[in-house]
């Protein structure tokens, strides 16, 4: 029987077999570096050196590139338009009618898009290579309350569930004569009959899931027995600590670098 694990892509790779917390620590470290260390191109450099090789090792590089491109593109376009053309002052690179493209705004947009790229790609790398139930268990063992672990689990599973549901709803509406192909106007008209059932059925779904959890003693206090066993090793535990310390070190260094000139001057 095939079990649906949300975005998880089953592969036989070293990245897949790592303890979920090791991956979480590594991705957290990458995110901290890309967000905290200054430089327009820093997020892209971290993406190239930190995310791409691991994605390739995990055999999910095409999935990461395709998923990240689709998710980041709309944000990148709006950032370039808003920041590039509406930056208050700066060096004008190009004048287009009443609008002027400014260098400072452009670089701000590039950095912003890079940060979003890092946020999306780390999320995807974790989701593609980690089974949600293993991640939930790992977080539970770390002391994270079950309810919060479940929220994380649901977040990881909601995207493919929404995609499947949206396809079924679209099929049902097309079968009743709703035209969904053609001009932008035709597609826009088709949006409401798609979105409304999607939202309503999701609300019904959430209620049913909540009841299903409650009747299976989800709200019971005290320790719980898990049939799942996570594979962990001493070197992974050491690596997690090192990554955590490194991430904290980067953040502390950045705060110091930002505040020191004020106190030293």
């Amino acid at each position: 029987m095939t079990v649906n694990y949300g975005l998880y892509v089953p592969k036989q790779s070293g990245i897949h077999s790592l303890h979920p917390l090791t991956k979480l620590a590594y991705l957290g470290f990458c995110l901290a570096v890309s967000w905290v260390i200054p430089g327009t191109w820093t997020p892209y450099l971290v993406f190239l050196l930190g995310i791409v090789p691991l994605s390739a090792l995990g055999q999910v590089l095409p999935n990461i590139l395709s998923g990240a491109f689709k998710a980041v593109l709309p944000f990148a376009i709006s950032l370039f338009v808003v920041q590039g053309f509406f930056w208050p002052e700066g060096t004008v690179l190009q004048q287009i009618g009443p609008f002027s493209l400014k260098e400072e705004g452009l670089f701000f947009a590039i950095r912003g898009a890079g940060r979003i790229l890092m946020a999306v790609s780390t999320f995807l790398l974790l989701s593609y290579t980690t089974r949600p139930d293993e991640l939930t268990l790992a977080l539970g063992q770390l002391g994270v309350p079950n309810s919060i672990a479940y929220v994380i689990l649901s977040t990881l599973q909601i995207i493919p569930r929404f995609q499947t549901k949206a396809t079924t709803i679209l099929d049902a509406q097309r079968s009743r004569g709703l035209e969904t192909e053609g001009s932008l106007r035709v597609r826009a008209r088709a949006l409401l009959p798609l979105v409304l059932p999607l939202l309503l059925s999701s609300i019904v779904d959430i209620e049913e899931r909540a009841i299903a959890l409650e009747v299976r003693a989800f709200g019971r206090q005290g320790p719980k027995t898990s049939l799942l066993v996570l594979h962990d090793t001493p070197w992974q535990r050491l690596l997690r600590w090192l990554l955590l310390l490194a991430a904290l070190g980067v953040i502390v260094w950045r705060i110091y670098a930002a505040l020191a000139p004020r106190f030293l001057s």
Binding site: A172, Q173, G177, T180, P197, S201
Partner: peptide, 18 residues
């Protein structure tokens, strides 16, 4: 599908899908 819908009506399993 929208054109073919004039010839073939399809009642889906789950009413909440439509």
């Amino acid at each position: 599908v929208a054109k073919t819908a004039a010839r073939v009506g399809y009642v889906f399993q789950n009413p909440d899908d439509q």
